[in-house]
Amino acid sequence: MPMLAAGIYVNSVRRWLDTYGRENAHLVAAEDFFAGVPATVCGIHEFLGLPAIEPQLHAEVLVRNPPAGVPAGRGRVAGARARVLPPL
């Protein structure tokens, strides 16, 4: 598989959704996850039918993903993602 194709998940995601149904999949974009880790984790819990328990963020997570804002580079990635992946 060519290197670029390995990073494009749209075909794999479509096959998963076609096979199991949209109601059985909870997709989370990395930029959304890191922009709001606690809310995203609680959303995953709720999707699974579990109590939403906010995670405790460890110092290592906070250093790599500071809560003060999203770096400009991630904004470009989000824009590219929106052009490649159609809304589900």
Rank of each mutant, 00 (worst) to 15 (best):
M1R: 14
P2N: 06
M3Q: 14
L4Y: 05
L4R: 14
L4K: 10
L4S: 13
G7D: 13
G7L: 04
G7S: 10
I8F: 03
V10F: 03
N11A: 15
S12T: 08
S12F: 02
S12I: 02
V13Q: 06
R14Q: 02
R14C: 00
R15D: 05
W16E: 00
W16A: 03
D18Q: 00
D18N: 02
N24S: 11
H26D: 03
E31S: 06
E31T: 05
E31Y: 06
D32T: 03
F33Y: 12
A35Q: 14
G36Y: 02
V37K: 10
A39Y: 00
T40F: 01
T40H: 04
V41N: 01
C42I: 01
G43N: 08
G43I: 04
I44L: 00
I44C: 02
H45V: 02
H45P: 06
H45F: 01
E46D: 10
F47C: 04
F47H: 03
P51Y: 01
P51E: 03
P51K: 01
Q56S: 08
Q56P: 01
Q56R: 07
H58V: 14
A59Q: 14
E60C: 15
E60L: 15
V63R: 15
V63T: 14
V63W: 13
R64W: 02
R64T: 14
P66N: 09
P67Q: 15
P67M: 10
A68I: 08
G69M: 09
G69N: 12
V70F: 11
V70Y: 07
P71A: 09
G73Y: 13
G75W: 03
G75P: 06
R76L: 13
R76C: 06
V77Y: 13
A78W: 07
A78T: 10
A80K: 08
A80V: 11
R81H: 10
A82K: 11
A82R: 14
R83K: 13
R83N: 14
L85K: 08
L85V: 12
P86S: 14
P86R: 12
P87H: 07
L88H: 06
